[in-house]
Design a protein around this nucleic acid. Sequence first.
RNA 1: GCCCAGGUGGCGGAAUUGGCAGACGCAACGGACUUAAAAUCCGUUGAGGUUUUACCUCGUGAGGGUUCGAGUCCCUCCCUGGGCACCA
Length: 823
Amino acid sequence: MRYNPQKIEKKWQKYWAKNNWRLWRAKDNSRKRKLYILDMFPYPSGEGLHVGHVEGYTASDILARYYRMKGFNVLHPMGWDAFGLPAENYALKTKKPPQEAVRKNIKRFRKQLQALGFSYDWNREINTTDPKYYKWTQWIFLQLLKHNLAYEAEIPVNWCPSCKTVLADEEVQEGRCERCGTKVERKKLRQWVLRITAYAERLLKDLDLLDWPEGIKEMQRNWIGRSEGVEVDFKVEGKGDYIRVFTTRIDTIWGATYLVLAPEHPLSEKISPSSYQQEVKDYIQKALQKSEFERVSETKEKTGVFSGAYAINPATRERIPIWISDYVLMHYGTGAVMGVPAHDERDWEFAQKFDLPIVEVISPDGKEHSHLEKPYTGDGILINSGPFSRQKSTEAREHITLYVGGRKAVHYKMRDWVFSRQRYWGEPIPVVKCPRCGVVPLPEKCLPLKLPKIKKYQPTGKVESPLAGVPEWVETRCPVCKGPARRETNTMPQWAGSCWYFLRYLDPHNKKKLVDPKKEKYWMPVDIYIGGAEHAVLHLLYARFWHKFLYDLKIVSTPEPFMKLVNQGIILGEDGEKMSKSRGNVVNPDEVIKEYGADSLRMYEMFMGPLNFSKSWNTKSINGVKRFLNKIWNLVTTWKEEKQGKRRKREEEWHLTKEAQRRLKKTKKELEILRHRTIQKVTQDIEALHFNTAISSLMTYVNHLADFPLSYIDKKHWETLILLLSPFAPHISEELWQNYLGHRKSVGLEKWPKYNSKLTERKEFTLIVQVNGKIRGKIKAKVGISQAQAEKIARNLKSVKKYLKKKVKKVIFVPNRLINFVL
RNA sequence: GCCCAGGUGGCGGAAUUGGCAGACGCAACGGACUUAAAAUCCGUUGAGGUUUUACCUCGUGAGGGUUCGAGUCCCUCCCUGGGCACCA
């Protein structure tokens, strides 16, 4: 029979689905060691599964199957992150409820995942849009509210005019909406905000506990943006006001020749003498209208206005002008900076433009320079700095801080998380606004607060969600005073449900608790988390934040949710470009499965290269792995037929000489050694996530097996091969294991093969003979050969002798590797 | 501009600790089988050279360095991908 992947794959998928995937079920009470292997759950879009999903999900499936065979109790679940704009936009277009699209898409995704033979524990499937699930998302929000980590505030926010909703800072990229690419506008709005900054320090510090790609950790560090410096007050001349500035370079304060306030700074409008007020007012007005991105990019050139007021530099005691400029940001530091043009690029630019004095106070060589070409931003020797002149800038900082009356301070770039969205398809925020009692959280027993079915999904554009147009839902009673009140109509952002979903898998049907503490303690943390790098600062930062909050509430027992993170690389189209519909280079996994089979698709994506590389699709290369599976199929099925006598043994056609027989006996032993080495290599490679080289060594093994007449190959070779192959290509493995090698159990229930390290150890090696570092000969030698012995045989080598006429100055001997004669 | 990752045959990639560069696969070429095609199998395949069963020279983005020996370590530079970007 020929290898027919379509037929056998369907057959075994049915077999695995029997009894609700009992084979893959994770046990909550087990004495076995646990392993939680998690995929980033997909957003079930209308386009269906992408080959990029297949890559990460195959990798985690290989690990899950491998570790089960190794005797671990493996939790490997799957679910759906189904709130979000695409479903809502679909509803807008079709005028059908998003629930319907979501149901349809989930069904398709589930079918596709099952067609790939992924060994998920489907009994634990979750869906973030299920009220039974989002009840707990809302519950966590209430806890955040209770602990003063959620608040409403009138703040400048990013507004996407196309999506008609506000966006978090993390969702804005280069001034554009991450989702639709529209330029983000700046609006001052009353919004729900989560106090993620309260966790800034811990989010930063605990990165050290994690086995994550260094790049991702670095991105989070940069996003949090901790910087240590000094806060110091400048007295406003002639008034009682003080302006507090934040600086990381207090050592440059003698060079501070002016101050700058952000336009939003409370003193900006207050300090000007009347003759300056109109100009200042105009400038502030204009600055406030610009989006943050416009402030930076559209006007490359610095702008600003002199306030007319002066402050006293606490170091020099001189009066310096106070300016107002939008290059100073209100939300960072104190919203005011001291301008040190000689030692800061931005201040330099500003001083050049407005002709402000430039005073050099740090010198790399200790000398004063009459003319500066550009600012010097490094450390050096203080000059023109009163009592601190001649000191090293790095050493004087502490004393200068005391001298000017400043104190140490830490600031972060990260801001609080704008959490409300003006859209329908999200978790309703479970609060009520009562004219008498103010903002009143819903009592927990009223959860879930379900989304009502509505007719109009059209965003109002009035900074309101479409929910505002459903009076029967909005109008309610205040839980406290029972008087008439209105529900909050904003919903939560897409990220809310994914902040904690990995906890719900542990106890998906629990009606009383988010998760049973016993189960939580057993399963957490996630041991391996696989997904794309695009979530480096969004999902992964938000989830860490919520997890730390739940840790403080003692709902979870680990400070961090994901111990090891692995990013799969992007799979590019055949043309080396990002896959996109408009380019027409999208590879559809359904079609690949139809033509090559799921096993070939899985194998190919793993064989393409290291998991974390980005790589281009190549349809021709998938033939290679298909051929490999086909070869295994032919070898095992033919071997079986020969054993059953259905086919004439091929070795009868071989007239073996005595010499050939002897050689065969020797090679049989070598084959056994190869078997053990292959087990060793595949085992080590899977654990290191080097799936491409694991497959290579399987290929090498098969190539060697194929060199012999089948009757000379013991069954154990086929068994080992199939066991090693089964995590990668489970369908063909199951078929060969049960139907051709005669086993009753699923191959997934077998034990992973062991290797004998006595056999994998090398007894012989190739001794490299070098003269002056160049290879001049190779000799087979026994492991452990002494230098004297090695030297003796090496010197006798013909190809070496001719180089050794000159005197040998030195001999370098690396045991079991090489010998090098230096002339 | 700053930070991170990477640069190895025609292509994807492999190479313990600094010790045989190019495993494995794709593509290509030659051959077997076949009426033919597909499938399968065998062989060749980094570049150049010589006195061609063999040997020599060059070769891991560029240049320099350390070393008996460098794809691997150090310095300078170039290129590609990703992230951040007036954060004081």
